[in-house]
């Protein structure tokens, strides 16, 4: 397997680019790359030349995460002002603004069917689930607080939920926290199932394998990517090699590789059969906040990465 650089856009945003995701193709157009930045904008790019389609404003204090509905028509972004904005991809019309005070919003993901939007709830130590039809809060999946007379400010700030992921069948939601714990929830019953331990530093991204539904990858500040059997509570392995925080991880559509982006300014491609890094891209000059594979098998494999250096890069994955 191999990554080959296709195109890079310097100064794609005015400030650090913090989030990226692919908006699936619709009948009218092909898939687009959606990026969010500290410059309070969300931009849409058309592959493979990364032509800027549109710049969407209306966000405050920097965009922390973006997510696209599987239909490809709507997308959501979360920003540091703790709002989630849901908007129409093609028109930038705001469909809904979600907030669940007093908690922050961090990473967000639509479920595979597109009926629910899961939002990492920051200091509320929970994941909020929003119905995508009514935009009502349907459930709050809370991490059980450790026993104790009263939650000290320390422990709660450590349970700050950063990342969230859906299992491919949509039955499970996992979330990662500042203290490194990963919690698995049953969506249907809105019930906490168990923790996955192994990290003791913030888990910034979680990703399920599209081919093996139980296999979960976690990217953490401890410079490791851990592999879990999310159902069996077991850690399958750990991959080290980054020299600083691993900020993001994504699994290739064929399930054979993962890509990671790290504070060490590199994007790495890992062969899962060897559990070793097979390629290191160092075209970014600052932290790589997001890596994302173009979903769906067949066709050309594409990987996009975004970085604090304000640039976005597109690679061919084969």
């Amino acid at each position: 397997m191999k990554l080959a650089g296709l195109k890079s856009v310097e100064n794609a945003h005015d400030e650090s680019v913090w989030a990226a995701t692919w908006v699936p193709a619709t009948d009218a157009r092909s898939a687009l790359l959606l990026t969010g930045s500290l410059d309070e904008t969300v931009k849409l790019w058309k592959p493979d030349d990364l032509l800027l389609q549109r710049t969407n404003t209306g966000h405050c204090l920097g965009v922390a995460s973006v997510a696209a509905h599987p239909s490809g028509h709507i997308a959501a972004s979360s920003s540091l002002d703790s709002f989630v904005r849901v908007f129409d991809v093609d028109t930038n019309v705001t469909i809904a603004t979600l907030e669940a005070p007093p908690s922050e919003v961090w990473q967000l993901r639509f479920d595979p069917k597109g009926t629910i939007l899961a939002v990492a709830g920051g200091s509320s130590a929970s994941v909020k689930l929003w119905d995508t039809a009514t935009w009502n809060l349907v459930a709050t999946l809370s991490i059980p607080r450790p026993e104790g007379p009263k939650p000290s400010d320390k422990s709660s700030s450590k349970k700050f939920v950063l990342s969230v992921a859906w299992s491919p069948d949509g039955r499970r939601v996992t979330c990662g926290s500042m203290d490194g714990t990963i919690s698995v929830f049953d969506v249907a019953r809105a019930k906490f199932l168990h923790h996955l331990e192994g990290h003791f530093m913030p888990v910034r991204t979680l990703a399920y394998s599209p081919t093996e539904p139980r296999l979960l990858f976690s990217a953490s500040d401890d410079a490791h990517v851990n592999m879990y059997d999310a159902e069996g509570k077991t850690m399958v392995g750990a991959m080290s090699g980054h020299s600083s925080w691993v900020l993001s991880v994504d699994v290739s559509p064929d399930g054979a590789a993962i890509a990671t982006g790290s504070s060490d300014r590199t994007v790495r491609l890992w062969d899962l059969s060897m559990r070793a890094a097979v390629q290191t891209m160092s075209n970014h000059t600052d932290q790589v906040w997001g890596v994302t594979f173009l979903p769906g098998g067949g066709g050309a494999g594409r990987l996009a990465s975004v970085s604090d250096d304000k640039s976005i890069s597109l690679y061919d994955y084969s």
Binding site: H195, L196, E197, G198, Y228, K233, T234, M235, G237, M274
Partner: peptide, 17 residues
């Protein structure tokens, strides 16, 4: 050479890993 990898361990018990 990475031929032998640590076998899967119970993630909740991995504190002793």
């Amino acid at each position: 050479d990475g031929k032998e990898k640590s076998s899967p361990v119970d993630a909740s018990a991995s504190i002793l890993q």
